[in-house]
Design a binder for these strands. Sequence first.
DNA 1: TAGATTGTTAATCGATTAACAATC
DNA 2: TAGATTGTTAATCGATTAACAATC
Lengths: 216, 216
Amino acid sequence: MPHNIPTPTLNRLPIYYRRLLDAGEEGAAYVSSAELGRSAGVPPAQVRKDFSYLSQKGRPGVGYEVPALASHLEEFLGLVNAKEAVLAGVGNLGRALALYPGFPAYGLHIVVLFDNDPDKVGQEVGGRTIIPVGQMGDTVRRRKIRIGIITTPAAVAQEVADAMVEAGIKAIWNFAPQSLEVPGDVYVKNEDLAAELAVLSHHVNQMKIVPEEEPA
Amino acid sequence: MPHNIPTPTLNRLPIYYRRLLDAGEEGAAYVSSAELGRSAGVPPAQVRKDFSYLSQKGRPGVGYEVPALASHLEEFLGLVNAKEAVLAGVGNLGRALALYPGFPAYGLHIVVLFDNDPDKVGQEVGGRTIIPVGQMGDTVRRRKIRIGIITTPAAVAQEVADAMVEAGIKAIWNFAPQSLEVPGDVYVKNEDLAAELAVLSHHVNQMKIVPEEEPA
DNA sequence: TAGATTGTTAATCGATTAACAATC
DNA sequence: TAGATTGTTAATCGATTAACAATC
């Protein structure tokens, strides 16, 4: 019944998943909502509610079966078949994401890198050759890639997004400080690092006045 | 009255701020809640409500004064005095953040880089020399740094966080996929890139079944 | 059985949105 | 004045939490 799952729930699922993997390695057959909740910083009732959206049942008095729940989450999150993504803008941040070790662990792979800087085109990053943005359309279409990552300067982000949408990309992870205009059937997740650090800085300033608790 | 500002509001403020800077450059003296709302993807009423928490008044029929509102937000977000941060773990991601051009634009500066890899200690990144983690305490205390960024492997994240807390860090931006235990007066913002990409991947999978709209 | 933990309902909490009188 | 846009209240929406009977 993956129908109308709250966004906060969705964001917690990968955290539960990670905890399940760890529990599995430790040899645990069952894990309780209390334990999963601890890993995500939420109360046990929240965990049970979250799983109720997925119709995932546990055993009263015992907990949730580790392998069964893990594989259900894998399927639900779309991690069963390796997912492929394309990345545009191979600056420092783009390079870091291209080489980030956490993605393959989730079956996620950045398979193509684009950049328009002639100095960068042709370079290799983690075994992938950087190709010019103009060739993006063909490649994305041919490989049926659906996820695009934008780590370009703000000035060209919209243009890159347009090209991605045109090529069939359906979800964009946007690291450029620039809000993107896309059709309604394309999902955009903005990751504005400077804005986030600014909020952190605000928290530090306020800390003596109003003690802040960590948001979920 | 910065008393009990909702987290979503707080996260929108830097977006409004950026729009105000742009509007200022375009020579606008006033900007409407409708326009600010567009930049953040929320309705005008939301913008007005957000400012009501800050007791920021606009002029009915006209809008909000660009320079006044911008400088109020600057102060509120703690961007007036340059903010300093320390970063531990100079891998690809750490390096990218250390060189990220968006931070200085907000008056935010990563002033010290730590790593325990003997090969990295002594290297320069953007004019800053990498020093060993063992020296963190003294430096953070001496410079009264309050913000710490963790881009280490998960295995050492807790240890680094402990050292940061011990040295007086009050806000931690944690990029390691590892939940941290810290005292109640320390704010932790987790940035789990793999989890976020996993959620994105899920959206792509679901897209044909349930059309998703972009969350605020 | 006794103890533990679930699933779910109802209560609570908090954020968003609509609506409109007040104001420039 | 007429038109535009604010500030704020009340209604709505949605997520979290408490509580407890049901179940292993």
